[in-house]
Computed example of a mutant assay.
Amino acid sequence: MSKSIVANRYALALFKTAQENGQIDIIQQELLEIKQVFQTNQELEELLQNPRLSIAKKKELLAELFNGANQFVQNLLFILLEKNRMEEILNFVDEFVMIANDAAGVADAKVYSTRALTVKETAAISSTFAAKIGKQSLRIENIIDPSLIGGIRLQIGNRIYDSSLSGKLNRLQRDLIGS
């Protein structure tokens, strides 16, 4: 997770605004899309940091790229641009998602399995592990990993729960070798 104080402050301010206007989910979804744009287009960040391009031109570019975005999101992008903080956009989105998840009692989780999980299995994993970490539910991303042989590996933040067959075999091997 991000350790940027600046990103946290901007994220908290936008979260409070979104909360007051009942738009947390909409803004979170738009921010995740913006994050994806910045991750896939490194040239965009370089262009926005180019000193030869005026702030007005950069704002026009952002307004054109994200013209369907929520006004609060657009305003925040303009503020980041004006304050020369566009390099914080990815950290900012991560911070916003973390704040929104905490407020909703939700945690993001990655579940590695040998096959796609059913809706019933996903719900069971969510309810079981959400209680263990003090959350109401988990937002699960299922990742197929045939190297697990069987079982699942669950990652919530920096916690890993490994009940996969390959994990058990590795632990057994370490115990037998004695290291």
Rank of each mutant, 00 (worst) to 15 (best):
E43A: 14
L44H: 05
E46V: 11
E46W: 00
L47V: 15
Q49K: 15
Q49E: 13
P51C: 07
L53E: 04
S54R: 12
S54F: 03
I55Q: 09
A56L: 13
A56K: 15
K59I: 14
E60F: 03
E60L: 11
L61C: 08
L61W: 02
L65H: 04
N67Q: 11
N67D: 12
A69C: 10
A69Y: 04
N70H: 14
N70Q: 05
N70M: 03
N70A: 03
Q71V: 14
Q74L: 15
L77Q: 06
I79G: 02
I79K: 07
L80S: 09
L80M: 15
K83H: 13
N84W: 09
R85E: 12
R85K: 15
M86F: 13
I89Y: 07
I89C: 08
I89N: 06
N91T: 05
V93E: 11
E95R: 08
F96A: 01
V97Y: 00
N101F: 00
N101W: 00
D102C: 01
A103S: 12
A104D: 04
G105M: 06
D108A: 14
A109Q: 11
K110R: 14
K110V: 15
T114I: 15
T114D: 04
R115D: 03
R115H: 13
A116R: 10
T118A: 09
T118S: 15
V119M: 10
K120T: 13
K120S: 10
E121R: 03
A124Q: 12
I125D: 00
S126C: 00
T128W: 00
F129D: 01
A130L: 05
K132W: 03
K135T: 11
Q136S: 13
S137I: 03
L138A: 09
I144Q: 11
D145T: 11
P146W: 01
P146I: 03
S147W: 02
L148M: 05
L148N: 04
I149Q: 07
G150F: 01
G151H: 04
G151T: 02
R153S: 06
R153Y: 01
L154V: 11
Q155H: 02
I156N: 02
N158M: 04
R159P: 00
R159E: 09
